[in-house]
């Protein structure tokens, strides 16, 4: 989901080596940075982990949009702590990707020039305070759905990063739910904000799991490599089944008239998101794509003198130390 459209790379390696590699994965062994791995595995992982890292970073923006307007000191502190966690997740994930031989600066460059993506969800605007509730509840909630199984992914550094990330994500999800609780218990205006936030974020949250399995032709190799642990539709179904009762508890209405409990298979039937909108968003035409990327570009450009100075200072210090020895 944070890596919605990662295509598995084809691989042209020696069949025997490939078979031995697959056997290790099938046996549940972890692949470590120094181990041999197929080129396709490495490239697919770089794209997936990088896309996840970028999502954490760009994901700070829609929430940062409300930090300066948080309604109480407690909410401001909670939101700051959350956004700080997200930056930390970005850091773990960039570190995991670096073990595959691509630097953070290179990945940043690829984000800025459009060669790498981030989750489509962060291309939607946050318009009221209730959106801070909806983002925590639904977006972090969907992130957990996807990331809990990734704790068992075959690549060691990625799996370990996921363990740290997951602990914090469930905290974020609860925090978001509490914001929603306060809103639905509040004034008529607050209830309206809460419902409006759910109306706007429901389908974009469903899109976070990526296209429907029938249109997602790239999953099988990733599943065999245990880079992807479940299909998109499996995770989406699980998300709907867990979220609908929570919405009911809040007294909010899921914006789907056809949502029904299916007695036979013990799960909800629900309306698929508008996949045309999804493909529009990932190809650059979401409501905030241009603004999000230009905010990142501006931060990168404005910060260049700081990064240059820090590097220059570190080099001078190292040179002085060397001269003194």
């Amino acid at each position: 989901m944070y890596a919605q459209m990662v295509k598995s790379e084809a691989t042209k390696d020696d069949p025997e080596q490939l078979a031995a590699f697959q056997a290790r994965i099938d046996a549940g062994e972890k692949i470590e940075p120094k181990d041999w791995m197929p080129e396709g595995y490495r490239k697919t992982l770089i794209r997936q982990v990088g896309q996840h890292a970028h999502s954490e970073i760009v994901g700070q923006l829609p929430e940062g949009n409300w930090i300066t307007r948080a309604p109480t000191l407690e909410r401001k502190a909670n939101l700051l702590a959350k956004v700080q966690d997200e930056a930390g997740h970005g850091l773990y994930l960039y570190c995991a990707a670096e073990t595959l031989g691509v630097s953070r600066d290179e990945m940043t460059q690829m984000l800025l020039d459009g060669r790498m993506k981030y989750s489509s969800i962060f291309n939607y605007p946050t318009l009221t305070w209730a959106d801070m509730g909806a983002v925590g509840w639904l977006v972090d909630g969907a992130a957990i759905m996807n990331q809990v199984p990734l704790q068992r992914t075959s690549y060691g550094p990625y799996a370990r990063a996921m363990v740290r990330v997951c602990k914090e994500e469930s905290f974020h999800q609860r925090q978001g739910f509490h914001i929603m609780m306060a809103m639905v218990k509040g004034t008529a205006e607050q209830k309206r904000m809460a419902q409006d936030a759910l109306n706007r974020f429901w389908y974009p949250a469903l899109m976070m799991f990526g296209p429907s399995d029938k249109d997602s032709v790239h999953s099988s190799q990733s599943m065999a490599w245990k880079i992807k642990m479940n299909t998109n539709d499996e995770l989406r179904q699980k998300f709907v089944d867990e979220t609908v009762p929570q919405a009911e508890y809040l007294g909010l209405t899921i914006p789907d008239e056809d949502l029904t409990w299916n007695e036979e298979n013990g799960q909800y039937d629900f309306t698929e998101p508008d996949w045309n909108e999804f493909f529009d968003v990932i190809s650059g035409n979401g409501p905030c794509n241009v603004d999000r990327l230009s905010a990142r570009q501006k931060a990168w450009d404005d910060g260049a003198w700081v990064r240059d100075a820090m590097n220059a200072h570190a080099e001078k210090k190292a040179a002085r130390k060397l001269a003194a020895e």
Partner: peptide, 17 residues
């Protein structure tokens, strides 16, 4: 807190937050 998400480097984002 106005720096959220737009600091010169990720480490600074974390430190400022």
């Amino acid at each position: 807190s106005e720096w959220c998400g737009v600091a010169p480097a990720l480490e600074e984002d974390i430190a400022l937050a």
